[in-house]
Design a protein around this nucleic acid. Structure first.
Lengths: 216, 216
DNA sequence: GAATTAATTGAACGTTCGTTTTATTATTGT
DNA sequence: ACAATAATAAAACGAACGTTCAATTAATTC
């Protein structure tokens, strides 16, 4: 056998990416074999090497594009306003929405860093640091203007990111809570955590869609 | 060659556990080979099988004893008092101290769950759930007595645990902050997050050792 | 419709994996 | 001193790993 009827390079590559994200998220990068991945896609293992030169390059591609996606959605969602409360709200909303929508890819990006070569690890970490820097800037501005009351900006940023990203560990779509409800609760917890001095009205307004008033 | 001079079963087993925790934390369970582990201990791979029947059994033992240790330290630290603020303070302090002290073992317990067989996974998750239940009970009591102001007990418990456990990702002993300082900041953030209605004096008292007053 | 290019197969390469078996030596108990 | 036992080494097992290569067929181009 050789080329199969209806075979299409673009479709095959997309299928490989999707299957790889799911398999790595479920079994781990080391535990996933190229033959297992190929079987999931419906091709022979050798066919994978037409699209990705090595297994690690495949992993790196998945991670890089995930981080680029995160940066892109934040740049699109970032508000023009300088109000720290609104900026923080936008950051939290974007972060949670993005990570819930791409639970598997997030798992891969967070858990498989140690399988990257040093240079590639550095590259991914640089992207991550740049993204986290945005949050620190918001917290610093808020602390300076008095909108927030924060002990340690760096620690608070890390705590918030761990708390928000942790959603993917337990959140399952279609269960007790909707994404909107989860986001609202996390926004409320975030605002209290940073000591935001705003009332329920501002909170609802900052959240964008006015739903049941969020009590800080 | 065969038995070496000075060889001792107990010492060898302890050396295997310690080396395994470090190697798995650094490279991952799947990436660590039994030969690599044996070399780290200073024996041949076959010698490992005198102490652990399979690689997975070794992983399971490490995880089970880590969870037992966590439960044990909490039972020893758990205050008799019914005051939710004091109980929550004790929980946070114990959690952070334990996880920082055993960073590598925590990494293993959090990252390698998928390498366990279904039955063993269930067993570890049961222990974890029981431990988290303690936190939910504290939060529920605090919400009922009015000491805390909480939207969703379950969500808040998960958020707090993710936030606290996240410390091991970035904390390195001997860097900018000491364990005491980190714990104080996280206690402060926790109390604000749950809407605890207490003043700085109570906070310092709850923290046990009266250090620089913690502002909520 | 022939030539070219794209996509894939099937088989094979050398290596490493977890694990088992057997033999050998150190230590302990008598 | 000698038997019993504990601890390890050395070698080997089959299976699986990531990857390569040559052959083959489908789609495209002219």
């Amino acid at each position: 056998m050789a080329r199969t009827t209806g075979s299409d390079g673009e479709k095959t590559e997309a299928a490989i990416r999707e299957a790889a994200v799911n398999l790595i998220a479920r079994f781990g990068y080391e535990a996933m074999s190229m033959r297992q991945l190929a079987a999931e896609v419906g091709v022979q293992a050798a066919a994978l090497y037409r699209y990705f030169p090595t297994k690690e390059e495949l992993l790196f591609t998945l991670m890089r594009e995930h981080m680029e996606g995160l940066t892109d959605t934040w740049e699109a969602a970032r508000p023009i306003s300088g109000d720290p409360v609104q900026r923080l709200s936008a950051y939290v909303e974007n972060h949670i929405a993005f990570h819930i929508e791409r639970r598997h890819a997030t798992h891969v990006s967070n858990m498989e860093l140690r399988s990257l070569s040093p240079e590639r690890l550095t590259q991914i970490l640089r992207m991550r640091t740049a993204y986290e820097k945005e949050l620190r800037a918001i917290l610093r501005d808020g602390a300076e203007t008095g909108a927030f009351s924060i002990d340690d900006t760096g620690l608070t940023a890390m705590a918030l990111i761990q708390m928000m990203t942790g959603v993917i560990v337990w959140f399952r779509p279609g269960e007790r809570l909707s994404i909107t409800e989860v986001t609202a609760t996390y926004l409320s917890m975030t605002m209290r955590l940073v000591g935001a001095k705003i009332d329920a009205y501002s909170a609802a307004r900052a959240f964008g869609r006015a739903k049941d008033a969020v009590a800080f």
